[in-house]
Design a protein around this nucleic acid. Sequence first.
DNA 1: TAGCTGTGCCCCGGCCATAT
DNA 2: ATATGGCCGGGGCACAGCTA
Length: 241
Amino acid sequence: MNLQAVDLNLLLAMEALLEERNVSRAARRLGLSQPAMSNALARLRGLLNDPLFVRAPGGVAPTPRAERMAPGVRAGLEQFRRALDGVREFDPSSSSRTFRIALSDHAEWLLAPHLLRAVEREAPGVRVQCKRLDALFVLPEAELRMGAADIAIGFFPDARTADESTRLETVAEEEHVVVMRRGHPLSRRTLTIEDYAAAPHAAVIYRPEPWGLIDQELAARGLRRNLRLASPHFLTVLHTA
DNA sequence: TAGCTGTGCCCCGGCCATAT
DNA sequence: ATATGGCCGGGGCACAGCTA
């Protein structure tokens, strides 16, 4: 690749397209008209000999090539920005950045008030956009890599710490608990795993397949649970107790 | 039908060669 | 050193075509 043929503005265009996934919005983001962005995309396509973005409902979707390029483009532009800003450290008090956090509804319910207070106190210009995780126990690597989420908070047992594109950190430890109404017959004795499996219950499950950790643990003991309601919402499941 | 992308045409500004 | 004219690339406008 001849770097002389690459206009830095094309990389900004690509970054905006990766972020917005819509040519018109990407154009507005950079203060350009839609045709100018379309033209920039056409030049990128010619330069890289790949469609890069194909039509999708509501806009465009990145091709595998564009997805592979995304981390490098973002990292490169970030380096440029830091170099041009004189390696300015992140300053919460003056930042106007929007942080996107992917998390479950119960994590959002628990953390959002604390986060809001901290932001108001230390980073009044910062905005936080919460979005739901698409799957429980599965690190949304693609979202993090593409910049669709800055942080993901959840339980990710299979996350690979060796992956250079993501950084893992334990922020809290939680236990699975069973919640039942007052006076429930099972509340009068110590709950066994057999009691739990046999009792009709609701559980937080994002997708019917593959089964989650609880089902795997039960299957290892020759048990299968009596699941009556699967919901991706912790608060809904709690409300059914 | 609305919203989206792509294209053709025109204009503007920057670059370069040349004249003064 | 400065002015001038031609060329070229990029952006805007208008509009056609596509798609959900």
